[in-house]
């Protein structure tokens, strides 16, 4: 009974943590981008402009909740909810530190992959139900981009799974106590990072919403809190992908001297900043170029990585 209470408390704690982290991230991104682009960014509301996000949130809550008359109302309504739901659910399997985490299930990797696949529905349905040509194009792009990048996202993780011999995320982290996976699984790491970016459709993979081409892509028709959910969902997605990379490739909470929780957050923030830096520095490839890189470069790389990992593991085990 006490055990159950404890886990309920951590679940709520993590949920709140994610919800404060995401708006904080919006502020961080705006400030960092500004820093790298020789300008100030939000610096008026509160110390260093940190309350800007709160002001924006209040504004967005009070905006008219408008559904365009030509939209498919029900689907239009649920689409933003899906992305929030799937991204938040994914956090359930992330082991943050020993004893801190929501669920500890044996198919954690599969659960994460399943949730990110479901997340694709949100964008596709949102784009399709808006009944707007730009949204439709955005939705179409999102569908093909996410489906193809999902394929090698899964494949790139299999090397890690093979090394740990488990689908359980906690065991994967523990298996990295001696050496972080980023060393033996470097190619897996690269492929997964790229796929993760594509999955969260962040620049340079923001093709579904490519502003200069499709205005706002799949969420052109969304406003108010529904848009807010897409928006915050995207930022929670960045936190999620960074957390997942930390777990799979950077040894999760492992690290010398500092307590595990601190290590986890250091790694998490390093990746978040890296993603923001990417956004500040790269242009956007064209849709078909992205697909051909995916299928012709990333997929063979992921498969090769898996085959080599398997062969080495077999050889080592036979040696014993």
């Amino acid at each position: 009974m006490i055990n159950l209470d404890w886990s309920a408390l951590t679940a709520i704690g993590i949920l709140l943590g994610v919800f404060t982290l995401a708006p904080g991230l919006i502020w961080l991104e705006r400030r960092l981008l500004a820093l790298w682009q020789d300008r100030y960014g939000p610096n008026r509301v509160g110390p260093f402009g940190i309350f800007q996000v709160i002001a924006d949130m209040i504004k967005i809550f009070f905006k008219e909740d408008w559904i365009p008359p030509f939209a498919d109302k029900f689907v239009f309504f649920i689409a933003p909810g899906i992305i929030m739901l799937t991204v938040l659910m994914s956090f359930a399997v992330i082991p943050i530190a020993p004893g801190i985490g929501v669920m500890d299930i044996n198919v954690g990797v599969l659960f994460f992959l399943a949730m990110s696949s479901l997340g694709a529905y949100s964008v596709v349905l949102g784009g399709w139900s808006s009944n707007n040509k730009y949204s439709l194009l955005g939705g179409l792009r999102a569908a093909s981009q996410m489906i193809s990048y999902e394929v090698f996202m899964g494949l790139s993780l299999l090397g890690v799974v093979a090394m740990a011999g488990s689908f359980n995320l906690r065991e994967i982290v523990n298996a990295q106590a001696g050496m972080w996976n980023i060393v033996p699984q470097f190619f897996g790491f690269v492929v997964f990072t790229v796929a993760g970016l594509a999955e969260m459709h962040r620049l340079p993979f923001d093709i579904p919403e490519a502003e200069s081409e499709l205005v706002a892509g799949f969420h052109s028709e969304y406003s108010g809190m529904k848009f807010g959910m897409f928006f915050v969902g995207e930022y929670i997605g960045i936190v999620l992908i960074s957390a997942v990379i930390t777990t799979f490739f950077l040894g999760g909470w492992h690290g010398p001297f500092l307590p595990p929780l601190v290590w986890f957050f250091i790694k998490l923030f390093a990746f978040i900043c890296f993603f923001i830096l990417l956004r500040a520095s790269l242009p956007r490839p064209r849709f078909d170029q992205l697909m051909s890189w995916g299928w012709k470069l990333m997929l063979p790389l992921a498969i090769l990585n898996l085959v080599v990992t398997g062969a080495v593991l077999l050889a080592v085990r036979q040696g014993h």
Partner: peptide
Amino acid sequence: FAQDLGALSPVFFMFN
């Protein structure tokens, strides 16, 4: 032009 192709930063440097 760089912004049209998705690169966010150059436009700020160049306007400076």
